[in-house]
């Protein structure tokens, strides 16, 4: 009896020591519970997801996906796929144009908010998640053009730049950095559409500086030169833009270069 009491006290002491050393958080406990529950729950969560895809609507499919991915927090591809599916839902054919656009906007916001939330648990795959978040708005606008008018100044490119900038800060590789540099044309167009010429010039300036980091030296030189020509034109300086007009990558800016 006495030996038993000592054992319990010793175990309690060890537990207290472990807790004070590790200082567990609620998130740790949740993760532990998630790990423990995963083998038992995951097959059923998948089955439920499949059933929802077969007979549920997009809200239900997305809700089920959230239940499933709560068990797989680091599966960033899964997050991106289901969020994308939700954001790009076909919608309701009875809705008018503005109604459809508003619904698409709401779905996009929810999908991005969910992905933003998923970033916290994505670990070293956070950068991949950010890249996927960067291109989701652009695809959504391609499906629902009316959505563009509801996005913030700079449009889809501004949103993409925002996510790619975070990815860069987190140590993303050169591909992300180059993507962001080449995104400058769309970003600039978005700002010009919103009447923000100063903002557009700032984007161009930053992109010219960043062009130096493009790994293909010839491409870097050409890109930087064309960006500089556009910058000069927007500053009101007389510029020969024939080289820019010959470069189809600059097509989004053509309306502002004529």
């Amino acid at each position: 009896m006495i030996a038993g009491s000592w054992s319990v006290m010793l175990a309690a002491g060890c537990l207290a020591g472990a807790i004070s050393l590790v200082q567990p958080r609620l998130d740790d406990a949740r993760e532990l519970a998630s790990w423990a529950a995963r083998p038992a729950v995951l097959p059923f969560a998948w089955a439920a997801q499949r059933a929802a895809m077969h007979s549920g609507n997009s809200d239900e499919v997305f809700a089920r996906a959230q239940q499933l991915l709560d068990l797989l927090p680091t599966w960033t591809d899964g997050h991106a796929v289901f969020a994308g599916q939700f954001a790009l839902d076909g919608g309701d054919l009875a809705q008018t144009g503005p109604e459809r656009s508003a619904a698409a906007h709401r779905r996009l916001q929810i999908a991005l908010a969910w992905l933003e939330n998923a970033r916290r648990q994505a670990g070293r795959r956070e950068i991949e998640l950010l890249e996927q978040m960067a291109f989701l708005p652009d695809i959504a606008v391609a499906r629902e053009p009316g959505l563009a008018a509801l996005l913030p100044a700079g449009g889809t490119a501004a949103m993409a730049d925002h996510y790619l900038a975070i990815a860069e800060q987190l140590g993303a590789g050169p591909v992300v950095r180059e993507n962001r540099t080449f995104l400058a044309v769309q970003y600039c167009r978005g700002l010009l559409d919103a009447g923000d010429r100063r903002g557009a010039l700032a984007v161009l300036g930053a992109a010219i500086v960043r062009s130096a980091d493009v790994r293909d030296r010839d491409l870097a030189t050409e890109w930087s030169a064309h960006l500089t020509l556009v910058q000069q034109h927007l500053l009101g300086e007389p510029t020969d833009l024939s080289a820019v007009f010959a470069d189809l990558r600059f097509e989004p800016l053509f309306p502002y270069l004529r």
Binding site: F44, A48, A52, S55, G56, N57, S58, D59, E60, F62, A63, R64, Q66, Q67, F86, A103, R106, R107, I110, A113, W114, N117
Partner: peptide, 16 residues
């Protein structure tokens, strides 16, 4: 509660 456009539309997900 999941993040969806319409909770009323996602009631099927509450089946568990």
């Amino acid at each position: 509660e999941p993040m969806v456009a319409s909770a009323a539309a996602a009631t099927g997900a509450r089946a568990p």
